[in-house]
């Protein structure tokens, strides 16, 4: 308990704890829900929590982009795909292997333990001087100077992805049930 609860810092920390709980519970729902629609709802919850964490990391712009792109676009697109390709029997009885799920859980726990202990046991060296303040203005400047080639390339990638998605989703569609 570093700060008292009913101060600005204490309430900030409390909201942060709520955001962590949102992220963790959303991720758990997204991976463990039986029906895919609930899974997407959990994914949206998790992304809302992650957007809040981005806000705490001094970047409200990225938090807004997370809400716009992930919660607003990706989750809605996945929901549409679920409605189009309806998985009616998500878990057929007898095919789910309990031992596989156990090994998956074990491997995921091992990965979490490994990554978390690397993070915990390393002494991170921080620099004292920052070259800028990381504001939206600085992001814009960096995007159009240092990262301009990547910026252009990602627009090409997105264009190709749009055309590719259209082509993939249209081929094999017959005229009479279109």
């Amino acid at each position: 308990m570093g700060a008292a609860l009913f101060t600005a810092e204490g309430l900030t920390g409390l909201v942060f704890l709520v955001l962590i709980a949102t992220t963790v519970s959303g991720a758990l729902v997204a991976t463990n829900a039986k029906r895919l629609v609930r899974s997407v709802a959990g994914l949206a919850l998790c992304f809302i929590g992650v957007a809040g964490l981005f806000y705490y990391l001094n970047s409200p712009f990225i938090a807004m982009m997370e809400m716009l792109i992930y919660v607003g676009a990706v989750c809605v697109a996945i929901t549409f795909a679920i409605m189009l390709a309806e998985p009616r029997n998500e878990d057929k009885p007898g095919k789910q292997s309990g031992i596989g799920a156990f090994f998956g859980f074990f491997a995921a726990g091992l990965i979490f333990w490994g990554v978390a202990s690397i993070g915990k046991n390393t002494t991170w060296v921080s620099v004292q001087t920052k070259v800028n303040d990381g504001s939206v203005t600085e992001i814009g400047k960096a995007l159009l100077t240092s990262y301009s080639l990547v910026f252009e390339l990602i627009s090409v990638v997105l264009l190709v992805a749009i055309i590719g998605a259209l082509v993939l989703a249209r081929t094999g569609r017959s005229k009479n049930n279109a």
Binding site: M1, G2, A3, L5, E9, G10, T12, G13, L14, F16, L17, I20, T23, V24, A27, L28, A30, T31, C46, V50, L53, Y56, L57, G104, F105, A107, A108, G109, I111, F112, V115, A116, G119, K120, W124
Partner: peptide, 25 residues
Amino acid sequence: MLDLCNDLNTYLMIGAFLFATGFYG
């Protein structure tokens, strides 16, 4: 407990948790 938001390790833990959950999924 309330000053977790200024600690790098908190974010690394959450990141590792998200990664492991996604892997399990």
